[in-house]
Write a protein that binds this DNA or RNA. Structure first.
Lengths: 215, 215
DNA sequence: TAGATTGTTAATCGATTAACAATC
DNA sequence: TAGATTGTTAATCGATTAACAATC
């Protein structure tokens, strides 16, 4: 399995979008595309596309462009989508449930293996085909089941304590929906944050900004 | 109402996080903080904090630092959280429902005024205290109710058609959860994307990367 | 071979960090 | 006044864009 040297965050963040656009082209039956054509469809520069892809290897061919299907597969491999990281969800509230039901974990390199909550009314109910477990059983579960990652869908107040429990169980990879900054406490972890409140506030700023422009 | 000159995206994206940390300090009863202290708590440089804040004005005082409460309020104003942008939600599936129930729109400058879906079994059911309307009534609703923004929680396939309808109704501000790039089609709009699939794939890349480091 | 388009180096642009004079 | 810390300019660093030789 290949390892790439210090790829910058901006490049990594663009990979899923390339993957999505290439997937659409593939569905439409397009077999080849030049960086120029793709750049126009995606609204970025051809130069950037070529620079980005060349971080991982020379996938194109001079005078021809890129073969859509093989580039799509290459990016899938780069992203590591062929993995099956065992993942548990903490918090089966509205958001946790939606994430569990809504996401195709298998297509994105993950497998949902457990769901935990401390609300007695939720314990035992099924989401997808996984029964919600008592949060008290977290330690037992993790000792018996290899767990690679955790999805945090708990309220801000509950986050620090749960983070500590997960960390001491050896879990180092987090998809964090809580309004709490894991990476301030723990340095040796991988965290991808989805801060919906932050996102909504950014939208608010930009709407306000746009309206003021008109005046 | 103030208008700031071309604030860069990186700065804007940090604002909600400042707001969150200052809110926590405020809750703890901290009245003043220096850029240095705050930088340590947040894991960034003091220089960056001072640069960021000075895009909007001189909120600090030499020799003293920043007054937590007033800085908190200032950032709230900069973000425009005192607004009440009328917002409709399109798509009352798992994700749409979770977003509607989970978010404190009022605290973030928005007010949820309508929910639309085309699934007959959902129409008429209540989310929060808003009854889900038939998507067919979208045009009527928007003609009778001033609507500033739309939240898109519809499947990728449905997104282009719905985007066109919303755009022709004059809606220019979007919180987009669909795996569809609005800004490629429409240039004069404000879009804040929440692409959960992209986020999960980025996590997958980074986990894979971290594991390979260990080998 | 000629045309097209990549891979890659060089130039530009923008964002972050460092430094320090201003000032509370 | 002396110490602290800002606001702001200058230096550095990194990311994007442009250019072009390599080559399919």
């Amino acid at each position: 399995m290949h390892k790439y040297q210090n790829i910058s965050a901006p490049v990594i963040k663009r990979l899923p979008r390339y993957y999505r656009f290439l997937g659409e082209l593939l569905d439409k039956g397009v077999t080849r595309i030049s960086s120029r054509e793709l750049s126009q469809k995606m609204g970025l520069t051809a130069s950037q596309i070529r620079q980005d892809l060349n971080c991982f290897g020379g996938f194109g061919q001079q005078g021809y462009g890129y073969a859509v299907e093989s580039l799509y597969n290459e990016i899938g491999n780069i992203l590591g989508l062929d993995h099956n990281y065992n993942t548990i969800l903490i918090g089966a509230g509205n958001l946790g449930k939606a994430v569990a039901v809504h996401m195709s974990f298998e297509k994105r390199g993950f497998r949902l293996t457990g769901i935990f909550d401390n609300d007695k009314s939720k314990i035992g109910t099924k989401i997808r085909d996984i029964a919600v477990s008592d949060l008290a059983e977290l330690e037992d579960f993790c000792k018996n089941n290899n767990t690679d990652a955790a999805i945090l869908c708990v309220p801000k107040e509950a986050a620090p304590e749960i983070a500590e429990r997960l960390y001491s169980l050896g879990i180092r990879n987090y998809w964090n929906f809580s309004h709490y900054d894991l990476s301030v406490q723990y340095q040796d972890i991988v965290v991808e944050n989805v801060h919906l409140n932050d996102s909504l506030m950014i939208l608010c700023y930009r709407i306000t900004d746009a309206y003021e422009d008109q005046e």
